[in-house]
Amino acid sequence: MQILLVEDDAALAAHIMAGVREAGHVVEHCADGRDALVRATCECYDAIILDRMLPTLDGLKVLAALRATDDATPVLILSALGDVDERVRGLRAGGDDYMAKPFAMSELLARLETLARRNAPVAEAASVLRVADLEIDLGGHTVTRAGRRIPLTLRELRIVAYLARNAGRVVTRTMLLENVWDYNFDPQTNIIDQHISKLRQKITAEGEADLIHTVRGVGYTLRAE
């Protein structure tokens, strides 16, 4: 993937670039809002990582200018302003995702992956998702595995659907919380793990392979093996 990183803190930028390169992406860096806008409009990127507080031009203004030119490049806002209403403001301004500093590299990479894919012309509207022998019918609200119907609650259906939509990619706990629950909040205890383990029990029968894999310290991924 071709990624533009807009971040004025040199040390943090170096760290992000190293991480993103390691994950196999091509990354360009600029430290200034005006410069970022020029580059983003001239070149085509798969995703932009945008800091909010920038010299010369504020990150949200860069974003607004970009969206005004009908540029739909996925933008991940990265900011020290981490409060819920700041997050909402960032998303309303046209951001596709919002991360507060400090963050884990793995979280950033996981989000970048799903973001860039959002822009790809995949059959997003597909009402049936398949991963290995697991079949999720979104229209009919049913989940079957190897022909066996699995009774799930609506929330569990949403979790498994989100995992399936991002099959093969790592989904972090906060990504699950943001996308499956309709509240912007910060649970004190990590309850997401409990939900996943319940779900795992339900969709894995005796002798079947576990489809939900735990990625240590990062999150989960749904894949055949």
Binding site: D9, A11, L12, H15, I16, A18, G19, A80, G82, A100, K101, P102, F103, A104, M105, S106
Partner: peptide, 13 residues
């Protein structure tokens, strides 16, 4: 926040 982000970055490396 920013130094904390750097700290986490370094620890990850």
């Amino acid at each position: 926040r920013t130094p904390l982000a750097r700290l986490i970055g370094r620890l990850e490396r």
